[in-house]
């Protein structure tokens, strides 16, 4: 299957990446060739195969439910492009 412009516009919206028309044309070509490449897998019958869910044959460790950190608001906000006292600031979302 090829990725046409309509599909590309849809997935770029899902991925929250804006694309101009010129970019759409070149990306549509690139992505179509990648999709053609990965469709090689269709040649393989996997009806009897279970999908892999973990590559390590070990169960994940559980830990006690206790607070070990916290009070690091300043650190968390430190790299924010725009902040106001204790909050991240984003463009207005409610009119």
């Amino acid at each position: 299957m090829s990725i046409d412009k309509k599909t590309l516009k849809h997935i770029s919206k899902l991925a929250r990446i804006s694309l101009d028309e010129k970019k759409i044309a070149s990306l549509s070509k690139d992505l179509s060739s990648i999709v053609k490449f990965i469709e090689k897998l269709n040649k393989l019958n996997t009806d009897q195969t279970k999908p892999l869910t973990s590559i390590i044959n070990a169960s994940l460790k559980s830990r006690n439910d206790e607070v070990k950190d916290g009070k690091i608001r300043d650190q968390i906000l430190k790299n924010s492009p725009e902040k106001n006292e204790e909050f991240f600031v984003v463009p207005k979302v409610i009119e």
Binding site: L44, T49, K50, L52
Partner: peptide, 10 residues
């Protein structure tokens, strides 16, 4: 499909 093939590779 890829996760199934990954199982086969493993």
């Amino acid at each position: 499909k890829a996760q199934k093939v990954r199982q086969l590779i493993k």
